[in-house]
Design a protein around this nucleic acid. Structure first.
Length: 585
RNA sequence: GCGCCCGUAGCUCAGUUGGAUAGAGUGCCAGUUUCCGAAGCUGGAGGUCACAGGUUCGAUUCCUGUCGGGCGCACCA
């Protein structure tokens, strides 16, 4: 509809430009939905933007343009308003067509092909497998999965990935933590390192290890702690302390046994994460292993690419990437003086790999604390002669947790965090997802656990789900009264829908495809959540103002197909958000 | 100190990329059920859009500065 109006306006505009001999600066035509019903259905500000070039009064321009607009039978009237807005009023019949459209398309209503099947890779969550996901990851998971669904809905070919950091020092610390808890379970006595992973899940993995392998990995604590740097509480250094413990672990256990424990830790935790995300309604097409990049030689290759293009230099025994050539604050180490590649090195390789797989667009969704990382990653992409514009890094701001008015601290190491699973169990998947996605991702968010956990009606998801359940209830009522619903009869009498509540609802329904497109292209799923709220409110208002099942069979049918359309759009939109639409609650 | 994200109703947040009288939820006050589900609906109070300049027909939106908050600034991930 918007496009059709645009065409008409375009024609009027070119004849206007011809008539007044304006070298039309080709300002792209803006047509918007009106906020106020008295302003019609659509409005354009074109006359105001032309005022300067045409050297004419905006209202005069508007009048001239209106005269030049070709006749179209879906337009009721066109008016000039305010400083020079052109307001379009559509015929009731044209507006009502959306109901037939929804009826024809069902779960396809709202989908489009603006994405033109372009390939988009989207990576999100990618939390280190060193412990269960916490509520902070939940926001990224909800955001990433809904953005994925939105992009798919508007015609992109979406590939969702989780980058698994299954290599590196943090994983060694995890393996060491697991082993120490295992030794503890075997009866060895020692002080657990302050920098180790202290969560309950580490004990559980250790217990499993003991059950499966008995005393295969047992070494006396005196050997384990022999010759290591003191821990921080004892006046030493917690980082050196844990690294020394890791080295002793590798030495005492040998490569083979160490690897068993290492892999056990990862597979248990990663399995838990996969299961957790699946239950949260977050699916992936691929779990991409960092270790595979190292073992395949891709990391070395990426480093070579940079080396050969002269973007690396050696200093203090390490290899540095000249990211300052591309606007970064400082150069970054890629290969440490001990010969080990940094996390950044494998990230460079990962991004090169993404480009080589031929995606048209690459989206990284990171926590806001990683924003300092954007410059160096973009720099590396440019240095490897790739198109940096293809890469979008979207930041998800933190959700600050509260219990009532009390702030909740979070630390993975100390194990005091609230897990995503815990949240899910208490609030439910639907409420948690809706809550996370309701706010813009770039907005700091206060997440009150008390509020989210309480089963009160404060939670907006109930409001939307209730609207859906109410429609279902009306159709149940219809059946109880022994009446049947005839869609053909309903579609023939859409002209009975003349109440203002009905006009509002119809306008709201026809807005849905536009909302979907805007939300997808701007990566702003919260627009969809707000739309659902508005739609539900219009429905509830309508529900209270009018009876649907009435004696006038034609009117009754027209109303029933209208609320059936509302139900369909709620189902479609909630589906994209990964939230269920129960028939009763 | 430098960089990034912000500052809108008591609270939590929208604001369609610069448009018409700045909105919603929640909280508060007052109504609403012989009627398809009251987890609903109706009305009311509540604002210097942090502050000060600038850009133009027009600024909550764009630019600069100040104040305030969050997060970064590793041979960690």
């Amino acid at each position: 509809m918007k496009e059709q109006l645009k065409n008409l306006l375009d024609q009027a505009l070119s004849s206007f430009a011809e008539k007044n001999a304006i070298d039309s600066p080709l300002t792209h035509i803006q047509i918007e939905r009106t906020k106020d019903k008295s302003h019609g259905d659509f409005a354009s500000n074109i006359a105001m933007t032309l005022a300067k070039a045409a050297k004419m009064n905006p209202r005069q321009i508007a009048a001239d343009i209106i005269d030049l607009i070709p006749h179209a039978d879906f337009i009721e009237k066109v008016e000039i308003a305010g400083p020079g807005f052109i307001n379009f009023f559509l015929t009731a019949e044209a507006n009502q067509q959306v109901i037939k459209d929804i009826f024809d398309k069902n779960d396809q209503y709202g989908l489009s092909n603006v994405g033109q099947a372009k390939k988009v890779q989207i990576e999100f969550v990618s939390a280190n497998p060193t412990g269960p996901l916490h509520v902070g990851h939940g926001r990224g998971a909800a955001y990433g999965s809904v953005v994925s669904s939105l992009l798919k809905a508007v015609g992109f070919d979406v590939h969702r990935e989780y980058y698994v950091n299954d290599a590196g020092r943090q994983m060694d610390i995890l393996a060491t933590s697991v082993w120490l808890r295992y030794l503890d379970a075997c009866g060895e006595v020692f002080t657990f390192p302050s920098n180790g992973y202290k969560g309950e899940y580490v004990h559980q993995i250790a217990e499993q290890l003991k059950t499966e392998y008995n005393h295969q990995f047992l070494h006396p604590a005196s050997d384990v702690f022999e010759g290591i740097t003191a821990d921080e509480p004892d006046g030493g250094d917690k980082e050196l302390h844990i690294d020394d413990l890791t080295n002793n672990a590798k030495r005492l256990l040998g490569d083979k046994n160490y690897r068993i424990i290492f892999d056990k830790g990862i597979s248990e935790i990663l399995g838990d994460i996969r299961n957790d995300l699946a239950e949260f309604g977050t699916e992936y097409d691929q779990w991409f292993s960092e270790r595979s990049l190292m073992e395949s030689g891709d990391v070395d290759k990426a480093v070579e690419v940079l080396k050969s293009s002269g973007k690396l230099y050696q200093e203090k025994g390490a290899w540095w990437f000249k990211s300052t050539d591309y606007g970064d604050e400082k150069d970054r180490v890629v290969i440490r003086d001990n010969g080990q590649p940094t996390y950044f090195a494998s990230d460079i390789a990962y991004h090169l790999n993404k480009y080589q797989r031929g995606f048209d667009h690459i989206i990284d969704i990171w926590g806001a604390d990683h924003h300092g990382y954007i410059a160096r990653v973009k720099a590396s992409v440019e240095a490897m002669q790739q198109d940096a514009d293809k890469l979008s890094v979207l930041l998800v701001q933190f959700a600050v947790l509260y219990r009532g008015t009390e702030k909740v601290g979070m630390s993975t190491r100390s194990g005091e965090f609230v897990t995503l699973r815990e949240l899910r169990k208490e609030v439910g998947k639907d409420a948690a997802r809706f809550f996370y996605v309701m706010r813009g991702a770039d907005q700091h968010m206060d997440f009150d656990l008390e509020l989210a956990k309480s089963q009160s009606n404060d939670n907006p998801v109930y409001y939307v789900q209730y609207a859906h359940a109410r429609v279902c209830s009306v159709f149940r009522q219809l059946a109880e009264r022994g009446q049947t619903f005839n869609t053909n009869l309903a579609l023939e009498h859409l002209d009975k829908l003349t109440e203002s509540h009905e006009e509002n609802l119809i306008a709201m329904l026809s807005k849905y495809p536009e909302v979907l497109e805007t939300a997808a292209l701007n990566y702003t799923p919260h627009l969809l959540a707000h739309y659902l709220n508005d739609l539900a409110r219009d429905f509830h208002t309508y529900y209270n103002a009018h009876q649907f099942i009435v004696d006038d069979v034609e009117l009754s049918h027209a109303r029933l197909i209208l609320i059936s359309s509302v139900r369909q759009v709620i189902v479609n939109a909630l589906g994209l958000m990964g939230v269920s639409a129960p028939e009763s609650m």
